[in-house]
């Protein structure tokens, strides 16, 4: 009994902080999402409107389009980051001159604030001064202008995200690879397994938990990308890179559409949870059940 009380006492600061900065703001956003509230409207008061905001967003072409491009962005960015991250992790596992130096260099983007990353890429892609349009023009004769080409803008935001976040995947997978026992691999080699078989039947299943956790983290992060895209393209050209994070930002801050913006935020959070749950169910749960039966 005494230890239970002490346990709660020790947990109290954490619960308090979690409640104050996590649970309460979330509940407040949910509450606001059931209101029509724009402080710059003729009537700036909060007006309870039941689920009208949720009903509206189902038919909001701009929101649906923004959700579509976000899904494409998340797919290309996360898949690329996992593949490149794994290859880099494998490369960094090997011994070569300057390995420590390259490991350090490659993690540098991680410590940069997204707004800085956006600024750097903006400088690199602006037609008159950017190194990327210059190199493309002078090597393959391609005119890159992310202000006019929707495809180019989309591709550059994906590449920027890969550049920024692949090191996180690499570091996580290095940690997973380092912790793998050597015996199964030695046995597989003795049994004559080739590299592909070792990868599919040993490495991948053994690093699966770390891989899935990394995918979850990157997926959730990519779904809420705002700063770097806002700085690089502003969501343009047109709505080509108006990802849901940018869409929510524009609804909530400049447009001060607090009620509707909150509803969009809640739905995006719900979608993120559903996607993660689906991934969990399809990749982790069957194996857990198989293992326990």
């Amino acid at each position: 009994m005494h230890s239970k009380k002490l346990g709660w006492l020790l947990l109290a600061p954490t619960l308090l902080i979690l409640g104050l900065f996590g649970i309460f703001p979330f509940l407040y956003v949910v509450w606001v999402s059931f209101h029509e509230w724009n402080p710059f409207a003729a009537n700036p008061a909060k007006i309870f409107n039941w689920a009208a905001n949720y009903r509206k967003l189902v038919f909001d072409a701009q929101f649906l389009a923004s959700l579509g491009v976000t899904m494409a962005f998340v797919f290309f960015a996360v898949v690329s980051e996992v593949i490149i991250g794994y290859l880099l992790a494998q490369a960094f596992m090997k011994d070569f001159p300057g390995r420590a130096f390259f490991r350090t260099i490659h993690t540098l983007p991680l410590i940069m604030a997204p707004i800085i990353v956006g600024s750097i890429w903006k400088l690199m892609t602006t037609p008159s001064i950017g190194i990327i349009p210059y190199m493309l023009k002078h090597t393959v004769g391609f005119d890159l202008n992310i202000g006019t080409s929707a495809v180019a803008a989309f591709a550059i935001t994906v590449i920027m995200d890969i550049w920024h976040w692949t090191p996180l995947v690499t570091l996580t997978l290095i940690a997973a690879l380092v912790s793998l026992p050597s015996e199964p691999f030695e046995q597989a080699q003795i049994d004559g397994a080739n590299k592909r078989q070792i990868f599919w039947h040993l490495t991948l299943p053994m690093i699966r938990p770390a891989l899935i956790a990394t995918v979850f983290i990157r997926l959730m992060d990519a779904m809420r990308t705002v700063d770097e895209v806002l700085m690089l393209t502003g969501g343009g050209p047109g709505s080509a890179t108006r990802y849901v994070g940018v869409h929510i930002f524009r609804e909530v801050f400049p447009r001060t559409n607090y009620g509707y913006g909150s509803a969009v935020s809640v739905i995006v959070l719900y979608l993120t949870i559903v996607i993660c749950w689906l991934l969990y169910v399809s990749l982790i749960a069957p194996r857990t059940r198989k293992g326990s039966s």
Binding site: N38, F40, A41, Q62, T148, A150, G236, P237, G238, S239, A240, R242, R250, E251, P254, R255, T256, N257
Partner: peptide, 18 residues
């Protein structure tokens, strides 16, 4: 209502530009 009207109409304006 500057920002409100601007933000509501800007996506269409950007579509004109593209």
């Amino acid at each position: 209502f500057h920002a409100q009207v601007r933000e509501a109409t800007a996506p269409i304006f950007y579509d004109i530009l593209t």
